[in-house]
Computed example of a mutant assay.
Amino acid sequence: MTALALALLALVLLWPAPLLLARARWTYREPRAALVLWQAIGLAAGLALIGAAVAVALAPLGGGLFDGLAALARGTGRLPTAHTVLFLVALGLLTWLAGVLVYRFLATLWVRRRHRELLDLVADPWPGQAGGRVLAHPRAVAYCLPGAGSRVVLSSGALDLLDPQELDAVVAHERAHLAERHDLVVLPFAAWRTALPGLPGVRRARPAVATLVEMLADDRACAVCDRAALATALARVGTAAAPEGALAATGRATLVRVQRLLDPPAPSPVLRFGCYAGAAALLAVPTLALLAGWSG
């Protein structure tokens, strides 16, 4: 019963749940809480999927996860061949998911280091902006490169297009990304998509999370700049995408963000509490199922 419940939970969290959450617009009212819910969905899906396989594999030994593993380690428990294969599949899946995450992290670090070195060669320092670089290009572009030796990059086209207030707003947005390390929020979802590319819910997760991250940066920037100026700047700069490993002020959801800036939704303590409570419950269910016995 435990294995079946975990398998159903994994199916829901990998397919309809992310699709529904990606379409939801109430998340725009509480983007930070919605991001916590997204993270809980991703982690709980992995726990439930692996837990279901482990529960079936170790069922002949009785007890829970630790009892079963202890019996295997002591040599006091033996698994039938089919259960042994399933246990190895579960270990392989865990290794695959963890390995993809580590690979994406290391690959992103390498891409950013190469990008930073290239920027320092071809871009000019931006006076008065720590880590700022100006790239000679007619197209209006603005993005930041997170990590050690972070950079805030604007093209000469953006400098020519934006007035001082709009420019300050764009810089504040990029500084918000760097301060809150939003790149680390997006990274697991990029790894999730690489590891499980065939699932529609997984494919929709990354762009939905990226939009919420941009809204968080917008909100933080608006604490120190004019909201209308940031909206105008986003509309002016357009939909230029960020290079790999970077975070851009603009993107595919720019129009939605401009509308949100000009007509900000009211925060909702109820939605916020619901997201946090839902995230806690999602993580608790597979964790407790793994720790408890599953023989009944």
Rank of each mutant, 00 (worst) to 15 (best):
L4R: 12
A5P: 03
L6V: 09
P16K: 08
A24G: 09
W26C: 02
Y28F: 11
R32C: 02
A33P: 01
A33N: 07
A34D: 07
Q39T: 13
G46A: 03
L49E: 02
L49M: 13
V54I: 14
A55S: 15
V56C: 01
L61V: 07
F66S: 11
A70T: 14
L72I: 04
R74C: 01
G75N: 07
G75F: 06
R78A: 15
F87V: 02
L88R: 04
L88S: 07
A90E: 04
L91N: 09
G92I: 02
G92W: 03
W96C: 04
W96N: 01
L97Q: 11
L97W: 10
V100R: 13
L106Q: 12
T108P: 00
E117I: 08
E117H: 03
L119H: 11
L121S: 14
V122P: 06
D124S: 15
P125G: 08
P127I: 03
G131F: 04
G132Y: 03
R133M: 11
L135S: 06
A136L: 09
P138T: 06
A140C: 03
V141Q: 06
G149W: 12
V153P: 06
V153E: 09
S156Y: 01
G157I: 01
G157S: 02
P164G: 07
L167G: 11
A169W: 05
V171W: 00
H173I: 00
H173C: 04
E174Q: 15
L178V: 05
A179W: 07
T194I: 08
T194M: 07
L196K: 01
P197T: 10
G198K: 01
V202K: 12
R206C: 06
A210V: 12
L212P: 05
L212A: 13
E214F: 02
D218N: 13
D219W: 03
D219I: 02
D219P: 00
R220I: 00
C225R: 15
D226T: 10
D226N: 13
A228I: 08
L230E: 00
L230T: 07
V237A: 06
A240R: 13
A240T: 14
A240H: 13
P243C: 11
E244N: 06
E244S: 09
G245K: 10
A246H: 09
A246M: 05
A248P: 05
T250R: 02
G251S: 12
G251Y: 10
R252V: 12
A253S: 15
V256S: 15
V256W: 12
Q259R: 15
P264H: 05
L271S: 08
F273P: 00
C275D: 07
A277T: 14
A277G: 10
A277C: 12
G278Q: 09
T287N: 01
T287H: 00
L290P: 04
A292W: 14
G293F: 04
W294L: 00
W294V: 12
G296P: 15
